[in-house]
Amino acid sequence: MSTKYVLVALVCLALISFKLQAGCTVVGNSTQNLGSFSSSQIATSTLSTRFSSNFSCSGFVNLLDYSRIDATLVAANFELQNANGDAIPYTLYTDAARSTPFVLNSTKEFGSFNLIDLLGLFGDDGTIPLYFDTAVANVSAGTYSDTIAIFWRWDYCSGIGLLGICIGRDKGSETIIINVQLTVTGSCSIQTTDVSLGSLTYLGNVSSAILPLNINCTKQLSYQYYVDGGDNFANGQRNMVLNAEAIPYVIKTTDGHTAVGPSMAHSIAGLGSGQVQGFQLLVLTIAEDRFPMPGVYRDQVRVIVEF
């Protein structure tokens, strides 16, 4: 009698399902500080930057289901203003290429997604960025701001099941308010030229020349300027020198009455306009009953602006 053995293989069958989930979040109202810039930067160049929209999403959307994210600009003055009414115009964009301005009541459709990683739409902080360019503007120092309101609406597949079937949708809408601001700091610049007092043989005949100054300080910025004592200042007197010889001189306002420098105690006050302001000072030799040694006498002074 033979024995027969029957081998039975058990096969375990399992149905495996999975789900990928995604979600959108509106961070809420915020203040976006773009930084601090000198008035000369704002007056001469465009500031190009970006900031957070406070809207973020995560995960994937379904291959077969229509999904979208829309942003509508519902409020913006397109000017950053300070308390004095000065303004810096700006243009808003939704793309880094700055292809089309984001204007009032316009809607940016971020599109229909097909298995696109939504994180590719977002910046380093996980939110959709907004792009911002200023126009040149002559403004005073201070804090400048504007309020931007954006209505967000989204509708996309938030869960993916077996075979890529959408098992849930994330829908929502909300308006967020962003206060955008930057700081403008005061600045000054000055330009001048070398001065020649001409030729003279006898110091009893006063020689004079105009010292021109071009000062550009921030609009409404108070400042003071003066001329220092020079490289050869001695015994309270400026001097042009040749070897051991010296010819004393003074610097005054053009009326010839008011000394300018050599310290802040003898300075001239000004108020910036944000544009070049031209001034003139008078350089005069001091009358002396003597004949100087022939040659070229020189000194070097510095015009100082404090603000």
Rank of each mutant, 00 (worst) to 15 (best):
G230H: 00
L213T: 05
R169Y: 08
I178A: 04
A244I: 12
A87M: 13
G168R: 02
T25V: 15
F233Y: 15
Y144K: 03
Q300P: 00
G186N: 14
D231N: 15
C157I: 04
I42M: 05
S187E: 09
M293N: 14
T134W: 09
G164S: 15
A209Q: 07
D155Q: 01
V139M: 00
D170V: 12
N138L: 02
Y131E: 02
S38K: 09
G186M: 10
Q41E: 10
S52P: 07
S48L: 11
F113P: 09
V206S: 10
V301C: 09
V184H: 01
G126M: 06
M264H: 03
V241C: 05
D231E: 13
T3D: 03
E288F: 07
M293K: 11
Y90C: 05
A259H: 11
D86G: 03
Q224T: 14
S196M: 06
D170T: 12
A97F: 13
L162A: 13
L213N: 02
H257I: 12
G186C: 12
T46C: 02
I69T: 07
G126C: 10
L211I: 03
L203H: 04
D289R: 12
A135F: 03
V296N: 15
G120D: 14
G111K: 09
H266T: 13
N235F: 12
C217E: 09
V303C: 13
A76K: 00
D146W: 02
Q191G: 15
G85I: 01
N84V: 02
A135V: 03
L221E: 10
I247D: 05
N84M: 00
A14M: 10
A259M: 10
L121G: 12
T175L: 00
T201P: 04
L162Y: 10
Q224Y: 09
C188P: 14
I69S: 08
P248D: 05
I286V: 15
S2L: 03
P292D: 07
I178Q: 06
S140F: 00
T107I: 02
A43M: 01
L80A: 07
R98T: 04
Y5S: 01
L7V: 07
V206N: 07
I128F: 12
N239D: 07
G256C: 11
F60A: 12
G229H: 01
A135K: 07
S187A: 09
L64M: 00
F110A: 11
L197Y: 08
Q277P: 00
D155H: 01
S267N: 06
D170N: 15
A96F: 09
E245V: 14
T72C: 02
E174R: 12
Y93N: 08
S145A: 11
S17F: 00
I190S: 11
F51A: 11
